[in-house]
Each structure stands twice: as structure tokens, then as C-alpha cells.
Design a protein around this nucleic acid. Sequence first.
DNA 1: TTGTAAGCGTTATCAT
DNA 2: ATGATAACGCTTACAA
Lengths: 368, 368
Amino acid sequence: MARTTDRAPRGGHSGVSIEDVAAAAGVSTATVSRAVRGLPRVSPATREKILGIADALGYVASSSASGLATGRTRTIGVLAPFVSRWFFSKAIEGADRELHARQYNLSLFNLGGHGSNRERLFSKTMVYKQIDALLVLCMALSHEEIEHLQKIDIPLVVVGGHVEECPYIGIDDYAAASIAVRHLIGLGHTDIALLHGDDETDLNFDVPRVRIRAFQDVMAEAGRDVRPEWDTWGDFTVRGGQVAFGRLWNQPGKKPTAIFCASDEMAMGVVFESKRMGVRVPEDLSVIGIDDHDFSDAVGLTTVGQRPDEQAELGTRMLLDELDGIAGAVRSTVAPHRLIVRSTTAPPRSAASAAQARHPGDQPRSVD
Amino acid sequence: MARTTDRAPRGGHSGVSIEDVAAAAGVSTATVSRAVRGLPRVSPATREKILGIADALGYVASSSASGLATGRTRTIGVLAPFVSRWFFSKAIEGADRELHARQYNLSLFNLGGHGSNRERLFSKTMVYKQIDALLVLCMALSHEEIEHLQKIDIPLVVVGGHVEECPYIGIDDYAAASIAVRHLIGLGHTDIALLHGDDETDLNFDVPRVRIRAFQDVMAEAGRDVRPEWDTWGDFTVRGGQVAFGRLWNQPGKKPTAIFCASDEMAMGVVFESKRMGVRVPEDLSVIGIDDHDFSDAVGLTTVGQRPDEQAELGTRMLLDELDGIAGAVRSTVAPHRLIVRSTTAPPRSAASAAQARHPGDQPRSVD
DNA sequence: TTGTAAGCGTTATCAT
DNA sequence: ATGATAACGCTTACAA
């Protein structure tokens, strides 16, 4: 390797430098730099020669060096409160697609479990000076954090939940929740329970709140009573849905004939737990969620689908366009959703066959 | 900002440099460097002063610059064929835990969907010179790729599947599959089907292969016939499990009373699809998987559990230790697994009540 | 078309 | 304990 002095490299890094290629090709480093990056002002002949040598030597530019020289890292950060939940893992895949296509790297910052050390993430080693742009996945940001991020002054977009003063991409949560509740009402349900999301820690508060409001509004519009004792909550996980259903069903009094869940994972928790408790879906209880989780089709869950991967892909594209100099490329956008009717929703039994007693003499369902 | 010349910065990066801090503190950049990194040879007084100023100015070292100077990026790469499947997302979370604790960054390289462009990933922008070490998540590596990786000469460990000549961390797949099959046999099952994994593209070939072999060995040991027509496959997804079950059950002839699935996602596909087809679990069919997926408890799936997060966390720890100069820190390790009996497995009905109606020939053995 | 050389912000080696 | 200063490898005016 070509070095100014002939002592061994300090850091212990091995590798072929641009100087090695330049020397081997008998040209300057500047020409090599142009050639390998596909820039103009290099004759076809020398370019070919350089490329051949670079390839033979296995030359790859040092990202640190070029980052230092250009001020760009060609890396974008993805900030997520979790990675193993459906929405987030799908979004990460979507972001990665676009990043990969445009030769960028993805640096993942997961807040899950780190809880208290969170502020450290923002100010120190992380984010700052390591990434060219930031994609925030559905999480609440404190005012300080937003301020901090804006001071850094890199393109930023949040996917899956509003954050004040930040461009965001996501579905219209109000409309999505509304269509779900209307589906239930359209089926003839009157006694509808609500399983809302409630994750105080990292998730965006706004999303659960909007879905709750939509539920209440649509119910009121349709002249349905909203019973406080049928309002329960979960943390967006399957287990959360299970315990919520247990809580709901084990209380004395009348039971609802349908339940609107703020996420598919919770809805599946309800489906699984109701099966365990001998409550038949959809005969005794209709269940609807939001998301269209990978498992939802298999479970037959009726839901309002969204595509976090596409949302994140779009957000990433905007970020990269902005970095490419297209000013104003990053703009808030509402992503599509659609009702997907499967087999966990049906008319309430009272509407279908009032003659149907509560005796277990009907269909041969496999109830655990 | 202090600069040698007074023109605007080229790259467009904003930020406080070490020189700014040095100037403000009236010391040299060398001293600032020592102070902010907590190195010795700085008097308590100056250190405090420098830290105060650095904080006030919001100074954060440029990772590119320090990377260039030290030859380390403080970033480790995680290579995964998918991110939204259980094993991988959990492993990523585990790796991140350790990384975060030790102030490292995580660079995610996802191969999902990129298919053909795969080699590009290895040789170009990626991996090389961008990361200090690499964690490979359960995927097959071609001989060339392994060679390439070893030439780069950075610490490397693979989690969840053997790759020849590479240190790996994972469960003993043979033992795990064996205990699952033995559980079925212990319950009295004779007619056991196999739903094996088969993902030619990216996943490690070895894992499915070993699990198949364990199945065959244990069956032979116990004197059970292995019927070729009861050997089916899936791609490790829920849908794969569904279609595999359909294929299995819709063929003419005798039905198995139990099925061993090479993963929980496929096992759940079987559970969901069998419900849809009116096959009762576990009365008509016992189902067992491997993994202990997040949903498995809710579904009541009997399985052999493993903890990919802990495996990846351990692998990451080894990598970082190695980087810290602890030679030989990276060593192959077998991770624990354990049988978790829930409610999708039970004795076959023939064993419980031989007074089964239906066709004659219901007794074990014979027939083809 | 190609080369020269001045940065980019840190770290590390010597002196002091 | 502190300060000069030479790398680190690449990019990019500016010259040639």
C-alpha cells in the first residue's frame, strides 16, 4: 500500500486505497476518483483501465474518508420504538428497499427496552453527524427532541403518526377507524365494544386518540350507545388483546356482540382468547382490527388494511430526493387504507336467528 | 466556526468542530480530544472546563473524521435475509441491545427482495470499510461470499445456522427437532407427518436439513414408518404452512394424527388452516412447531422454544469483545432450547377412544 | 482530459 | 499536563 511514510497503518485497517489504484494505473488520485464514481472528464480509455485495476485490487472507497470530504455519510437513520412488531418491521423493510436501490445505508436506532437512556440516543453518538436524513417510525417525540432534531437540520419525516411541525406520512386514522366501525354497524350491531391502543411510553399518542374519537363519533352518528364499561385498552400486542378481552368478558352484565380493535395484533389476541373461553367468533362476537397484519388473512380477520412498507418507502424516497437537491420533496402525505372483510365479522345472532337459543347444538365449530 | 479559510463549508454540513471547542476553551484540539473521550493526561480543571464548553456548544465528534483517523467506524453490520420474520426481528433487537449498551451503531443490510443484486451488496458500497464487524443472521452464504468476507478480515459470527468455517451461535437443531418428535411419539402417535422448511433462496440450507434428519432418525428409532406422502414443505411462513396443510390433507388415503413443523409460523399456518377445514386440533391432529414465536402462547401452540434475541446479543457481545482486543472472544456456541407443551398436542383419538366411527381400517399400521 | 494541492475533522506521536 | 503537527483517504476547485 502506498503511504507517505513506510510504517504500518495505525488503526489496523487493511485495504486498498485510492492511491494504490492511482499508482497502479499511472494516474492521479483525482482521476481515479472521477473514474470510479462515473463522473465525466475522464477519457473512456483511462476509465476502463482504472476500473479494471480497481476491480482487480478490490478497491472500495473508505466511507469515512469520503464522508469527511463531502460532508455526507450516504446513510439515513431509522428511528423506531420497536423492531419486532409488525408495523415497524414492515416499515423497515420498505425503507430498506428504497435505500438499497439508491445505494444508501440504513442505520437502525431502536428505542425498545432502552427506555430511560433515551435522551442519550439523541444527543450523543447517535443521529448527529452520522446520518444524512432521518426517518422516524410512529413514535411520540418530546418537544425537546423535535427541537434538537430540527436544530441538526437534516431532512426528516415521520411515518405512521403525526408529530407537530414535522412532515408525516400515514393513513387517515379517523377515516380508517370510521370505516371499521361503520362496517360493524352496517352488519346490524348495536352493542359494540372498543379495544383501544394505549402505549404511554414510546408510541405516538395521537394515533390511538384519533381512532377512539372516530369510534365515538360514528357510534353517536348512528345513535348507538357507547358504554364506558365496554371501553377497554391494550398495548397493541396480542397478549394485550388477550388480557383486554378477558377483562371485558369477565365483568358481569350484558356482553357486546362486536368489538372494534385499534390494531390487528390486539384483534388476534381477542380472537385467540375468545376461542379459549368458548366464545365463538363471529357467531357470538364479531371482531375487526386495523392493519392487515401478515397473519390476518390466515386467521380470517376482518380488518382495515394499510401498508407500512409502502409508507416508509415513500418517506425514504422523499428524504433521498431532498438530499438530491429537490427542495420541497418532503411533504406530508396521506396513505391509503381499505376495508378487508373476512370471517371474523357477521351480523349479530339476534339479527340473524332470534330463535337460536344459547344451547350448544349448532354448528360443529372447533372450540377449544 | 473555526476554519482555515473563511469561505463557507463545502459539504453543507453544519456543526461545531473540535477546533471551535478548543478555541473557546483556549486549549489545543489535542486536549479537547482527550478530554471529551475521557482519556487520561488532562487535569481535572481543564477537563471540566472543556466538557462544559463542549456541552454548551453542542459539540459531537464527526464520526467520519474519527473513523478516518482511527480506522474504526464504531458500527457493526447485521446481515439478514428478512427483517419482518420473527427470528430475524427478534435477533435484530437482541443485537441492538448489546450495541446500544456499548455505544455502537447498527447498520442493517437486508437481502429480502433484492434477490439478484445480492453480490453487489457484498462487494460494493456495503460491508466493506463501513463496519468493524459483521453479524450474519441465519442465511446461506456462497463459498465466494465467505471467501470475500474472510478477506476483509473483520470479526464475523453467524447466528442461527451453520456456515462452514465460520463461528456460529444457534440451537442444536438436531436435538430440538428430536425432542419435538419424541413428544409426539410419547403421546402415542404413530402416524406423524412432517412439514419441513425449504427456502432455497436465502435461508441457511443446513437448518431445515438437520431438522428433517432428526425427524427421520427419531421415527426410525421408535419403529415408526415415515410415509413419503406425508412429507410436505413450506417456506417458513404462515401461508406456507397453510398451503402445505391443504396439500397434505386433500390427498386421498389415510390421514396422519400429528404433524411436526419445522417452525412455529408454519405450525400456525397449519392450525389456522385446519380450523378452516374443520379439522380439530388437537382432537383430530396434533401440531408441534419450533421457535416459540410471540404468538405461540396465545394460539396455545406446543413448541420447542429458542431465543434468537439472546443468541444475537451473545454474538454481538463476542464481536465487540474481539474488537476490544480480547482475542478469541468469538467462538461457536450452542444456545439452549426447551420443549413447551401447550394445547395443540394430545394423544391420538385412536389411543383414547378406539370406538371411532368412520371407516374401518382405522387401526394403526398396514394399508398403503 | 488530467494533475496539483488544499482541505474535511479527528487522532496520535512527539516534544515541551 | 499540554501543544504542534503529521497522518487518515478522499473530494474538488483550480491549473495545466
